[in-house]
Structure formats: structure tokens, C-alpha cells
Simulated assay, not measured.
Amino acid sequence: MAKPNKKGPIKTVDVYCVQCKTQLYKYRKGGKGSLVKCFKARISQDFTEQPCVCPECGQEFARETMVRGTPAYKMIGGKVFAK
């Protein structure tokens, strides 16, 4: 399988926790679909102290995984939203 584009998209989205509305990431997302996974290389700003755990409410919002040979966070449905 092909690896994701190194340079990545220019457009960034803000990723928030659904429960407490805390900002988690600024992420360079490509395409217009919903946020299913975040490649670690495309996260431009990370506001979390622990990976995949909201710093405010402590809720786990994603799981660490490998997607197409690249480290990524796989989002748990309904735990985050992107603007």
C-alpha cells in the first residue's frame, strides 16, 4: 500500500473533545470526509499531555495504530469533532 503524502495538505482543522470542548490538535487534513484517523506526522500542534487522552476530562478519544506503515491515531466514534 502507498504511504500518505509526506508534505500533506495545507488546510488545517481544529480537533476538539466532544465532552468538554477542549482543543486537542491542529491537524492538516485532506479531503472532505469525517475525521477517522490522524497521522502523527500531520499534527501541526498537539495540546495533549498524554497521547489519545483529553487533558481536561481524561476521556480516551483515540487509539494508537499503524495505518499503511505510518504511525497514526484511530479516532473512536463520537469522541471528537473537527472545525
Rank of each mutant, 00 (worst) to 15 (best):
M1S: 14
M1G: 14
A2F: 10
A2Y: 05
A2T: 06
K3I: 06
P4Y: 05
N5H: 09
N5G: 09
K6Y: 08
K6G: 03
K7G: 00
K7W: 05
K7P: 00
G8T: 15
P9W: 10
I10L: 10
I10Y: 15
I10N: 07
K11M: 04
K11G: 03
T12Q: 13
T12W: 02
V13M: 07
V13D: 05
D14R: 13
D14V: 09
V15T: 03
C17D: 11
V18C: 12
V18T: 14
Q19N: 14
C20Y: 05
C20G: 05
K21L: 09
T22A: 14
T22H: 12
T22E: 09
T22P: 03
Q23C: 15
L24R: 02
L24S: 02
Y25G: 00
Y25S: 00
K26Q: 14
K26D: 07
K26N: 04
K26L: 09
Y27V: 01
Y27R: 02
R28K: 14
R28W: 02
K29W: 08
G33C: 07
L35Q: 10
L35P: 08
L35W: 11
L35H: 09
V36S: 04
V36E: 10
K37Q: 12
C38N: 08
F39G: 06
F39T: 02
K40C: 10
S44W: 11
S44Y: 09
D46N: 14
F47A: 14
F47K: 13
F47D: 15
F47G: 14
F47R: 08
T48V: 11
E49L: 12
E49S: 12
E49H: 15
E49T: 11
Q50V: 13
Q50C: 08
P51A: 04
C52F: 04
C52S: 07
V53S: 02
V53G: 05
P55N: 07
P55G: 01
E56V: 11
C57A: 01
C57I: 01
C57K: 00
C57T: 00
G58M: 05
G58K: 04
G58I: 04
Q59I: 10
F61Y: 14
F61H: 03
F61G: 04
F61K: 02
A62Y: 09
R63N: 11
E64N: 07
T65I: 15
T65W: 11
T65S: 15
T65G: 12
M66W: 03
V67E: 06
V67Q: 04
R68M: 15
R68Y: 14
G69F: 08
G69R: 01
P71I: 04
P71Q: 06
A72W: 02
A72S: 01
A72K: 02
Y73P: 03
K74D: 00
K74S: 00
K74R: 06
M75D: 03
M75Q: 06
I76K: 12
I76L: 14
I76D: 10
I76Q: 13
G77D: 00
G77F: 00
K79I: 01
V80E: 05
V80T: 13
F81Q: 05
A82V: 12
A82Y: 14
A82S: 14
K83T: 15
